[in-house]
Simulated assay, not measured.
Amino acid sequence: MTVTMAGTVSPAAASVPGSGIREIVNLALSLPDVVRLEIGEPDAATPAHIVAAGHAAARVRNRYTQSAGIPALRTALADRLHTRYGLVADPELVVISQGAVQGLATVFAALLRPGDEVLVPDPAWPNYEMQALLYGAAAVHYPLRPANGFVPDLAELAALITPRTRILVVNSPSNPTGVVFPAEIIAALVDLAVAHGVTVVSDEVYDEIVFDGTHTNAAALAAEHVVSVFSFSKTYAMTGSRIGYVVGPAWLMPTVARLQEPLLSCVTAASQAEALAALEGPQEFVAETLAAYRSRRDLVVGLLADAGIAVTVPSGAFYLMVPLADGVDSRSAAIHLVHAGVATAPGTAFGDTASSHLRLSLASSREQLTLGVGRLADWYRRTGGGREMS
Rank of each mutant, 00 (worst) to 15 (best):
H357V: 02
V190F: 02
P143E: 15
V151H: 08
G308L: 02
Y142K: 13
T4N: 09
D207Y: 00
Q260V: 15
I243P: 07
L77W: 07
E208N: 12
A159F: 09
A275K: 01
V328Y: 06
D212W: 10
H196A: 15
V201Q: 00
F150A: 04
T216D: 02
V25P: 03
V107K: 02
E367S: 14
G316K: 04
D203H: 13
A124V: 11
R258F: 09
V16M: 05
L376I: 04
T177V: 10
A100D: 14
L303P: 00
V300H: 07
L320H: 04
T46R: 08
V9P: 05
Y245A: 11
V322L: 11
R84H: 06
A57G: 05
G372I: 04
D207E: 13
Q102V: 14
V95C: 08
A340E: 15
V107Q: 03
L264K: 08
V267E: 12
G69V: 00
G240W: 06
R359Q: 13
G308K: 02
D43A: 14
Q272T: 03
A270V: 01
A305Q: 09
T383Q: 02
A340W: 03
I161D: 08
P146Q: 09
E92D: 15
T106Y: 03
I167L: 07
I24K: 11
V194T: 07
V194H: 06
G248Q: 03
A278P: 03
G18S: 11
Y85N: 07
A187H: 06
Y319L: 11
P32M: 07
A269Y: 14
G327F: 01
L221T: 04
D122E: 09
P126R: 10
R382F: 00
L111G: 00
H357S: 00
P152R: 08
L304T: 01
R366T: 12
S30H: 07
A340I: 07
F108V: 08
D329Q: 10
G40F: 03
A138P: 00
A12D: 09
V373Y: 05
Y293M: 12
A269R: 15
P123T: 10
V328W: 08
A76W: 01
A89I: 01
G103V: 00
E224K: 10
